[in-house]
Design a protein around this nucleic acid. Structure first.
Lengths: 288, 288
DNA sequence: ACCACTATGTAAATCTTTTACAAAAATGGA
DNA sequence: TCCATTTTTGTAAAAGATTTACATAGTGGT
């Protein structure tokens, strides 16, 4: 995803004085730039219109209009998410920066998604006898539990196993028709790999949601590849959880569509029980 | 968030023949519209330029340029996320639709965020003696576990309690300086409310991450309000988990910044142990 | 079939952006 | 420090895009 603001960051050193003024304006009020004509922008920056055109060209845009489009695409909703300075300590900037990361992760995941693998995975899960989600460590175990939470509602027999020893034990009980959904951010959780090998030995199908070309994906019948940079600020949270969650949502939705009325009926029952237990006219979504 | 494509959906019935052609073009190739001039668009649609202008006006835009900006903002990266037809069964459309929901949820959450409450919450958590995360049901229990996973790494004493009886028992052991982070999508989890009352009785501070003006928020010292529509397709996953996760990320980041070097050192240790246990040059993020 | 109304297109007018060129500022070497 | 050269910036004219005004075609009702 090439975005104009990272281009700006790159070429900033070789900008001239007037161009720097424009760069600052872009950072501070991208929204204004998106909505104003070149004359207004020039006036506000105290430079001439051609300087603005040249600035756009330097940023790799054909024309001022093309430049505006790029900026518009990046500012989404009038706010400056992607402008967010990742090193600022201002809470608003931190929030914007996190939002930018979230969005970038989601968009990138969707763009890189191997839809064939996803559809195949959904079909396999929909036809499975037992779905066992394996995931250990922060993100993966969270997603593993989420998989269980999501699929049992559709009427599928689902278990989430986050402990390596238990994964191995569960694997030993699997049969053809059973499916293991292997979750690993790094793709090299070697203990999980052992469990997957066992699962395959006993005829279970392995679907991996992991980084491609790593041990875990090698062991899978179907790999849904996720390849995300984690960012290098150790204080910052990892964005991969959003990617995993998104794919989980997608799988659950596709499986639900496959199952059709059966799934709908199960969801209705779960919701009915929940509503009864709490509040007769609780219109909330399933779960809390 | 007013977006041009939902406006289109709204006014579609009252569009004329030529305008419908333009509407179809917008849906099928928004990217082209963003990059082309009015003449090209007119030519491709087989209508005259003024018709295009009129079409833009009908969609509530001042000018063709303004219209293009709106489209650009919504298409972000050349893809048609917000165009995604929510009722289509095509996997690509489902994925786009989910992504659109995710993005909308994230942006809306960020826009509506009461930053004062967030900063206050972060300060309170950073200075806490014990942090107890309470959450039950699908989303909330996931987030509760995630809170624990996130904050223990910063060196905070953190527990996640998803069982109502245990919440009440834990509450009875709390003291001033302890903090309860109450997570509830609906805001009317009455059993959690009991636990929160108990926690307050014993002097703990209650921070609620929930829908505003509901029982849970009334019981909180600090409420971070989240108010999201859940969508009405029962097969579709709820978007609130993204909102909750985003706020959790934000809180964790702000707390980490508050704690400064202490937090960094703890993260380094966690990472070091993990790396050692797995792979000497494992550069992955913390956890898997 | 005619009238009134709406929808659409043509051509001129207006406004925006770009190009070409010239002036000013900055750079660097003697 | 000064001059020559290069780079940056601005002015004004040209090119291009969009909009307005008006005319024509189409549509539905009587």
């Amino acid at each position: 995803m090439r975005d104009i603001l990272s281009v700006l960051q790159q070429v900033e050193p070789e900008l001239s004085k007037s161009e720097r003024i424009l760069a600052a304006l872009l950072r501070n009020d991208a929204d204004f730039m998106v909505n104003a004509g070149i004359t207004d922008v020039a006036k506000r920056a105290g430079v001439s219109p051609p300087t603005v055109t040249r600035f756009c060209r330097r940023l790799g845009c054909e024309s001022y209009t093309a430049f505006k489009m790029q900026v518009a695409q990046v500012t989404f909703g009038g706010t400056r998410y992607l402008t967010a300075n990742a090193s600022s300590a201002d809470p608003d900037d931190v929030a914007d920066s996190l939002l930018a990361q979230l969005q970038a992760a989601a968009v990138k995941t969707r763009e890189a998604l191997d839809m064939k693998a996803v559809v195949g995975a959904a079909e396999t899960i929909a036809g499975s006898n037992l779905l066992a989600a394996f995931g250990s460590g922060g993100t993966s175990s969270m997603i593993s539990d989420e998989v269980q939470n999501r699929f049992f509602r559709l009427g599928l027999r689902t278990v989430s196993i986050t402990d390596h020893a238990m994964q191995l034990m569960q694997a030993a009980t699997l049969k053809p028709g059973d499916v293991v959904l292997a979750l690993s951010v790094s793709g090299r959780n070697l203990q999980m790999a052992n469990a997957l090998e066992a699962a395959r030995t006993y005829g279970a199908t392995v679907i991996a949601l992991t980084r491609p070309d790593r041990p875990i994906s090698e062991l899978a019948d179907i790999t849904i590849g996720l390849d995300l940079p984690e960012g290098d600020n150790i204080l910052r949270p990892s964005t991969s959880r959003y990617a995993f969650l998104f794919v989980t949502d997608l799988l659950a939705t596709l499986v639900a569509m496959h199952l059709g009325d059966g799934a709908r009926e199960n969801l209705r029952r779960v919701k009915y029980q929940l509503s009864n237990a709490r509040d007769p006219d609780d219109k909330e979504a399933l779960g809390d």
